[in-house]
Amino acid sequence: MPLSTDKFPTPKPATGKTREPRRGLRPAVLASAAVCLALTLSGCAQVDTTSPSTVRAEAAHGAPAKLGTVDCRQAKCIALTFDAGPSEHSARLLDILKEKKVPATFFLLGKRHIEKHPELVKRMAAEGHEVASHTWDHKILTRISDAEIREELKRPNDAIERLIGHKPTLMRPPQGRTDSDVHEIAKELGLAEVLWSVTAKDYTTTDSALITKRVLANASRDGIILLHDIYDGTVPAVPGIIDALKERGYVFVTVPQLLAPGRAEPGKVYRP
């Protein structure tokens, strides 16, 4: 079976399956927890999000965090992120990133991906990339029970920890669909949610030139670029994307570097 993609289909009518209720939620909270019906290129339009610049500004009033080699308060930063791997294309992608000296953030799937390519997960971490979660089986979190949400988030956490020695701190909900129940469970598991500002819709084409064009047309400072290293046209587009953005003065960073000196807070949602 092909992997479901991060397309944004119109949600189907309810089928009678109900979400396991969370104790103590007020009607207003329940209303805000409904599945997002208005979705945009930058993710779920109805979710309260925090921008990287806000995180950095708020951190200026507290204890400084490790900045690494880039200070995005000064540099023109952008984050390259990849969903739904590892895949047979990931080794080539890692070669490109190493050659270009570009760090990335990988939101990995568990079933058929982490479990199939554990050596690539280890390599991502060893080469300085951020390893994060894209759930275990790409289930739409707003359509399943709380117990299922917890399972979808916990299993990749545990699998990643076994491979690289620590649990991820970031996750990306499939299709960008999230709600208050997802936020609460993510917080419980120590995960912040990361959406995006740029997508090439690489699940719709194998045309690498078109993928490159779509990314470059929407790139901006503090941007978070969403790509998928599972599709045939994506990895061949990456060198051109990197070179063109570097020519425009962008510095590539991981999502944690984009937020530094602040840090992502479990249970919150981040998007430029």
Rank of each mutant, 00 (worst) to 15 (best):
R123H: 04
A75W: 00
V194C: 07
A79C: 09
T50Y: 11
A65I: 01
A14K: 14
E119N: 12
V35S: 12
A132M: 10
M171W: 06
K12Q: 15
G16Y: 09
G267K: 03
V55F: 03
V215H: 08
R263T: 14
I211E: 06
R22K: 09
K139L: 14
L25W: 10
L30A: 05
A219R: 10
V131N: 01
D179M: 01
G110I: 05
P156N: 13
A260H: 01
L210W: 12
A63P: 11
L97R: 12
D229V: 07
I224W: 13
V102W: 11
A219N: 10
E184A: 14
L67C: 02
I140G: 00
V29Y: 00
P266A: 02
D71H: 01
C77D: 02
K201S: 10
P27A: 09
S145M: 01
L141Q: 07
T254C: 09
I149G: 01
I211T: 05
T142G: 03
R162F: 04
L120I: 11
A217W: 02
M1C: 10
E161H: 07
K201A: 08
L93S: 10
K213L: 02
F8V: 11
K100I: 00
V182E: 00
R26L: 13
N218G: 00
L227F: 09
R19D: 04
L227E: 15
V198G: 02
P272T: 05
K187N: 10
K268F: 15
S208P: 05
K111S: 11
A34D: 00
I96R: 03
P173G: 04
T50W: 10
D222S: 05
I225T: 02
P266G: 02
G249L: 04
Y270E: 10
S42C: 07
L258F: 11
L141K: 06
H117S: 05
A125D: 15
L94W: 08
K213D: 13
L153E: 12
A237F: 08
L93Q: 09
H228V: 09
M171G: 00
L227K: 09
T169P: 00
A237N: 09
Q257L: 02
L153F: 11
E184M: 06
P64V: 04
N157W: 00
V121R: 04
P9M: 09
K201C: 02
E127T: 13
